[in-house]
Computed example of a mutant assay.
Amino acid sequence: MLDATNRSGGTATASPRAAATELAAAVPTAAADPPLTRARFAARCTRALLSPWSRLSLLLTLLAAAAASVLLFEPQRLLTHGWPPQLGGVTAATVFAVAYALCTVAFVPRPLLNLAAGALFGSELGLGTALVGSVLGAAIAFGLGRMLGQDALRPLLRGRWLRAADGQLSRHGFRSMMAARLFPGVPFWAANYCAAVSRMGWLPFLLATALGSVPNTAAYVVAGARASAPTSPAFLIAMACIAVPALAGAVVAWRKRHHLRPR
């Protein structure tokens, strides 16, 4: 009679077993809920830490720490105090090349480092050490900028000149970087990080850095090696050669200026 009444009234009453099954399906068990919550929380934290802006913040923190370390340890004292006496030969050159690379990442001007290389190791070994340090430092800066800063900074390239410069670096990476290395007015670290934000490949970047850094680096290294005799022909020629890359870079920039115009 109850069943008949329920059917006739239009209201069906679920059995106790069916009600318990529905309640169990609607409310997760206490044993299964915490792992699911922890997994979602871990996934959200991972996405936040790997987001473009988080990686850019890490890059800026690393660069700020590197710059602070340079101010604290003052590597320019090598020019006045000399290299530690316990290091010599190939070991000293290797340590100096690594320190050179790290200093370029930390915004230390390369002319100062090149003068130090010439004063400490002479013309031949100093030039080789400075070039190895230049390429290594450029590779470190390029890798950091590419991994930590590119995804966050590329959407900001909205200005006409920024887009034109990015297109020039991306399409003509080797020529653009060669001109930047030959032209002393372009800071070494700025060229590294601008190339990292662009679509330039690793091989054109490193090859142009190695070749384009030779003239200017050689001039400063020879000047540092002959600094004790400022009237010597080698010193005077080296100082004169410092102006040649600047002139060559200015000519290339003038001839290629139309490529930077927005289309």
Results as ranks from 00 to 15, higher is better:
A4P: 00
R38G: 00
W254S: 13
Q150C: 04
P204N: 06
L87T: 10
R44M: 03
G173R: 06
S15H: 05
R263F: 13
V70C: 02
G10M: 02
A93H: 12
T5C: 07
V27Y: 09
F183A: 09
A130D: 11
C194Q: 05
N6G: 00
S54K: 04
F107V: 10
D166F: 05
S228T: 15
P16T: 03
R160Y: 01
N216P: 01
V221R: 03
S69I: 11
A218D: 04
H81F: 10
F107R: 05
L169D: 06
L115K: 04
K256D: 15
T5S: 08
L156W: 06
L79S: 13
W161R: 13
L113W: 03
L59W: 03
L87M: 10
R146H: 15
M147F: 15
L36R: 09
R263C: 08
A39T: 15
A30I: 12
D166V: 03
G89E: 09
L148W: 00
P35I: 00
K256I: 08
E74K: 13
A48T: 12
D166R: 01
W161Q: 13
M178P: 00
P35N: 01
L131D: 09
L115C: 07
L207W: 04
L156R: 15
D3V: 06
V135N: 01
H81L: 11
R146Q: 11
A14K: 07
S170K: 01
F107H: 05
W161P: 00
L60G: 07
L102G: 07
W161V: 08
E124H: 08
P109N: 02
R47S: 11
V27T: 12
N192Q: 06
P230T: 01
G88A: 11
H172F: 15
W254A: 08
A20N: 14
D33I: 07
A234L: 09
A119T: 12
D166S: 12
S54H: 07
F96M: 12
L102V: 13
R40H: 03
P111K: 04
A250D: 03
A223P: 10
T61D: 01
V27P: 00
A101P: 13
L131P: 11
L102K: 06
A117W: 02
A65P: 02
L207P: 01
A66G: 13
L120S: 10
E74Q: 13
T13C: 13
F96K: 05
A195P: 01
R7E: 14
R261P: 01
D151L: 12
V252E: 04
R55H: 10
T5G: 10
S123Y: 04
S134N: 06
T37L: 13
A25L: 09
A48R: 09
L182P: 05
T11P: 00
R199C: 08
S123Q: 15
C103A: 09
A218S: 06
G249P: 04
L162K: 01
A64S: 09
W83H: 08
L260P: 03
R257I: 01
F142C: 15
G167T: 09
P230E: 10
G137I: 13
P84S: 08
R181E: 09
Y100T: 11
A32M: 10
W202F: 14
A30N: 02
A190V: 14
A26Q: 15
A229R: 08
S170Y: 10
L79G: 15
G118R: 05
